[in-house]
Design a protein around this nucleic acid. Sequence first.
DNA 1: GCAGATATGTCAACATGGCTGACGTAAAAT
DNA 2: ATTTTACGTCAGCCATGTTGACATATCTGC
Lengths: 170, 170
Amino acid sequence: MADVKSGVNPLFLREEELRQGMELLFYAYRDFTAEADDMLERLGFGRAHHRVIYFVGRNPSIPVTELLSILRITKQSLSRVLGELVRRGYITQRPGLRDRRQRLLELTPEGIELERQLSETQRQRVARAYRHAGAEAVEGFRKVMLGMVEERDRDKLAARSADRPVAVRR
Amino acid sequence: MADVKSGVNPLFLREEELRQGMELLFYAYRDFTAEADDMLERLGFGRAHHRVIYFVGRNPSIPVTELLSILRITKQSLSRVLGELVRRGYITQRPGLRDRRQRLLELTPEGIELERQLSETQRQRVARAYRHAGAEAVEGFRKVMLGMVEERDRDKLAARSADRPVAVRR
DNA sequence: GCAGATATGTCAACATGGCTGACGTAAAAT
DNA sequence: ATTTTACGTCAGCCATGTTGACATATCTGC
């Protein structure tokens, strides 16, 4: 009775369902990044620069180590792109007050403007998808996506929907 | 009365909501790929090899051009990884019957086994996220993700959930 | 049947962005 | 006083993306 063709096989359906989810991740990420990549190329930057600009803009005064733990790359890889962004005037570094070993990162006004432009198409893409799918679907999207993320990063992300400061840095 | 702190500003909330969605994409993709990348490295392959193996396994007898249109890379980039996979016995090529210019790609038994191993952790991650979020959330996830994908690829993906062959190739 | 388009492959050269390992300095923590 | 931490830097390697040019086989349209 293992009738594969009729789809009564729950294992087959499950596998198919999971593969569809995997593919959605691939396709969505592919298209999510494509437009910003074009813009970056015209500026002589790459996707790595965008990630740094994005997360510095999102976490003003972030120390280097924390940025590394978000990006999950080595400090050498980061310092290459970070150095360019600092030299070209998009990011500034200042020593931490409590811990003067730290270099706290901030976007300059130019950095803020660049971040805004770069993320604009991406925000629009997400906005469009949210609008078409509806509020309930968005809740489901968040739940599932959060479940894909490593546990140690979940709180940080889940907190984002609340209307309160997520972290306090001085 | 533009009280930013109290969150009554709908623009602020919307922006925050969208940025959270963007970050979910980044974090989920980062963690979705990490485990398989480790396994690939041990085999002397990279993520690009995985993508090729995955989509060839998913679309048996796929011609090269179609694979290129899925991956959105140049044929030179593809031919490098594809060549290695063919040489190392994970993929076979055979001429198309209707169009003998085509090289239709198939996984060998070794390729099927490798694909299974590589995707196993990813399937588990998706399965876990689906299980914890529930069926309704999964529907929402699908809707939103589909809305992020370029329109021309949506049909192909949406059809996947149905229990019928998606394409017929000979 | 010929001309042009298409599917594929290949070569050379280059850029981006990962990685490792080694080493150095300043400041904090014990 | 020593060790640990935060950060930076140098040199070099590898994977994977790019462009442009060119070759071959085959298909399609007139």
